Amino acid sequence: MRTVWLWTAVIFVLDQLSKIWVVHVMDLATKLSIDVWPPFLNFRMAWNYGINFGLLAGDAPATRWILISVAIGIVLFVLVWMRRDPPGRAGLVFAGLLIGGALGNVVDRLLYGAVADFLNMSCCGFDNPFAFNVADIAIFVGAIGLALFPGSKNAS
């Protein structure tokens, strides 16, 4: 479980520091847009009140607390799974990525009422209208990793 906690901490800190830096220090919350390396990487401020791609978006307090509860439920489920039936080291890393990302987005919902998304990437004539954050990347990689590459049993 140390591996899970280590990666949870790494992702959580990286996510929160990136949000503090970009949203507050670089003042993206006010500027709303910063071109970093157009069109490949841009910062576009997006307060996400829903889940991925704005699904289930609503500014209602009930939506916020339901999404916080679902995220905490998923974190607890993954922790119990890792404790009861630990996969290989790779599976523990993927679990840490997923948990760290989920907790990073929970903190956003608690602090701001929404998740701070700011990364926007486009390429090759495709103009991506969506923004995401480090936590979203970690959740995606962690979930795919747990589904496809759980690793061998009996890891430390």
Score class of each variant (00 low, 15 high):
residue 94 F to V: 15
residue 108 D to C: 09
residue 92 L to H: 06
residue 59 D to Q: 13
residue 80 V to R: 05
residue 109 R to T: 13
residue 107 V to Y: 06
residue 91 G to E: 04
residue 55 L to K: 14
residue 78 V to C: 08
residue 54 G to F: 01
residue 50 G to N: 04
residue 85 D to V: 06
residue 89 R to H: 11
residue 63 T to Y: 15
residue 63 T to C: 15
residue 97 L to N: 02
residue 70 V to N: 05
residue 51 I to K: 15
residue 63 T to M: 09
residue 74 I to M: 06
residue 65 W to S: 09
residue 59 D to V: 14
residue 97 L to V: 00
residue 57 A to T: 00
residue 88 G to Y: 12
residue 62 A to N: 09
residue 89 R to E: 02
residue 77 F to M: 05
residue 108 D to F: 15
residue 73 G to M: 03
residue 64 R to M: 08
residue 86 P to A: 01
residue 63 T to A: 14
residue 96 G to Y: 00
residue 59 D to H: 10
residue 63 T to N: 14
residue 88 G to M: 05
residue 106 V to L: 09
residue 106 V to Y: 05
residue 52 N to L: 12
residue 47 W to H: 11
residue 107 V to Q: 06
residue 84 R to V: 14
residue 93 V to T: 04
residue 49 Y to G: 11
residue 82 M to C: 06
residue 99 I to Y: 11
residue 75 V to L: 01
residue 86 P to S: 04
residue 83 R to T: 11
residue 106 V to I: 03
residue 80 V to A: 08
residue 76 L to D: 06
residue 73 G to K: 01
residue 55 L to V: 13
residue 66 I to R: 04
residue 87 P to I: 11
residue 57 A to V: 01
residue 102 A to N: 01
residue 64 R to H: 12
residue 103 L to V: 02
residue 61 P to G: 08
residue 95 A to D: 00
residue 73 G to V: 03
